[in-house]
Design a protein around this nucleic acid. Structure first.
Lengths: 220, 220
DNA sequence: CGGCAAACGATACGCGACGTATCGTTTCGT
DNA sequence: ACGAAACGATACGTCGCGTATCGTTTGCCG
C-alpha cells in the first residue's frame, strides 16, 4: 500500500508543519495525533458508515479532544479528504510488459476502490461538499487525484511507447472515461462493477483510438 | 420541457394521491401545495445554492409551514429528489434523420444539466445521501433516471435501425459512459464540459462499436 | 535538570437544521 | 352548512458543527 506512505501532517489549508521545512531549525510545532485521528476516521467509516462519520465520533474513537482535530483541520471536509486520500488506492502500475494487462490492473484498482459502499458514498459526498469552495477543492484535487492519475498515465504512456496505443492518446480523457463510468454506475445506476465491465472499459481504449486523442475531434 | 410534465404528487414513499389514480373518482385527499413547494425548492437552489437548500428555507420561500412539507415528503432527500427530477432535463430526442446529430443532442443535454454548479453539486450529494437507503434509492432511480435514459435509448435504437450503430449495442453502457464522464469531469476533475468533449463522446460510440455491445467482451 | 512553549483533553457554548408534535384555521367537496 | 382533509404557526428535543476557555501533559533546548 504505497499510496498511504504519508501518514504525516494534515493538508487542511493551515500548513503549520509542512510549510516551512527549512526555516526554523527545529521544533516549529506539529500534530502528534494526526495518524491516530486519520486512523479513527477510517475506523468509523468502516464500522459505522458514512452517515456516522462526524467529527465528534472521530474524536471519541481516537480518544482525542475535538479541539485537537479542529486545531489541524479547519473543517470536516478537509479531515475527510485526508482520510480518503489514505484509503483509496492509486498505486503505481508495475511494468508487466503487456499493455492490456496493465490497463486492466488500472481499471481493477478503480473498481476496487468503489467496491465498499461507504467509500462509494463518501467520495461523491465529499466532492460535492468541496465544490462550492474552489480553494479546498483545488487542495483536494492535488492531494487526492493527482498522484493516482499520474500513476495510471505512466502505464498508458508505456502502452504508447510499445506502439499498442496511439501516440497522441489523451490520457486524461481515458481516465475520466474509466473512473466516470465506474462512479456513475455505482452511484447513480446501481449496476454491478464486475470483470465484464472492466474488460470492456479496457477494450474501449484499444478499439477507439481515433476518438481518444488529444487533437480536436473533428478536424475540418 | 416535457420532462417536468408531472407537477403533481410527491414520490416520498407515502404515495397518497398518486398511488390510486383510478379508484377514487376525484378528491381522495392530496397536497394542494406540492407545486408551490417544489417551485420554492428550485428557487432556493438557483438563488442561494445547494448549501442553503434546507427544508426551513424552502418552507419560508414557499410561504408554507414546515409541517406541510413533512406531511408529504418523509425527509429532505425525497423532497430534493422530486425537485431535481423536475429540473434536470431528459427530453425525448426527436428523429432528425441523422444519427450523429441525435447523439450529439443527447450528450449536449447531459452537459447542459451539469452546466449549473448547483445542479452539479446537488445531484451527487443527493445520490450519496440516498445510497444507504435502498428503498429510497430505488424510488429515485425510477423517478429520476428511468425516463431520461429510455428517451436516449430510443435515439440509440434508431441509430441501430439505420445501420449506423451495431445491432447489439449496449445502450446502457453507452449512457453510463457519457453521463459518467461528464459527471466525473465536472465533480472530480473540474475540467471543462465543452463542444470538443461532446463531439469526442459521440465519436467514441461510433469508433468503438466492438467494445460497446451487449455480448461478453472477450469471447474465447 | 529545569523551564517553557506547543500540543493536548475536557468541557461548555451558540447556532442552525432536522424531524416531531400540537393546535387552531382555512379550504373544499358533498 | 357540515365535516374531513390540508394547512400555517409555533414550540420542542436532538444532534452536529465550529469556537472558546482552561488546566494538563509532552518533549525539546538550554
Amino acid at each position: 500500500m504505497q499510496s498511504s506512505a504519508n501518514s504525516g501532517a494534515p493538508t487542511g489549508s493551515r500548513p503549520s508543519t509542512g510549510s516551512r521545512p527549512s526555516a526554523a531549525s527545529r521544533s516549529a510545532a506539529g500534530p502528534r495525533s494526526a495518524s491516530k485521528i486519520l486512523g479513527a476516521a477510517r475506523d468509523v467509516l468502516a464500522r459505522q458508515g458514512y452517515a456516522a462519520l462526524t467529527i465528534e465520533a472521530v474524536a471519541a474513537t481516537a480518544g482525542v479532544g475535538k479541539s485537537t482535530i479542529y486545531r489541524w483541520w479547519p473543517n470536516k471536509e478537509t479531515l475527510l479528504a485526508d482520510a480518503l486520500a489514505e484509503i483509496f488506492r492509486g498505486d503505481e502500475i508495475p511494468d508487466l510488459g503487456d499493455t492490456r494487462a496493465e490497463l486492466r490492473r488500472a481499471v481493477d484498482m478503480t473498481i476496487d476502490n468503489y467496491a465498499n459502499e461507504d467509500l462509494a458514498t463518501a467520495l461523491p459526498a465529499l466532492a460535492a461538499g468541496l465544490l462550492p469552495n474552489p480553494e479546498l477543492m483545488a487542495g483536494f484535487r492535488e492531494g487526492f487525484l493527482r498522484r493516482k492519475r499520474e500513476n495510471i498515465a505512466v502505464a498508458l504512456r508505456r502502452g504508447v511507447a510499445r506502439g499498442d496505443l496511439p501516440a497522441d492518446l489523451d490520457t486524461d480523457l481515458v481516465q475520466d472515461l474509466w473512473a466516470g463510468t465506474v462512479l456513475y454506475r455505482r452511484l447513480m445506476v446501481g449496476a454491478s462493477l464486475d470483470d465484464n465491465l472492466a474488460e470492456r472499459l479496457v477494450d474501449l481504449v484499444f478499439a477507439s483510438a481515433s476518438a481518444l486523442t488529444v487533437g480536436t475531434a473533428t478536424p475540418d
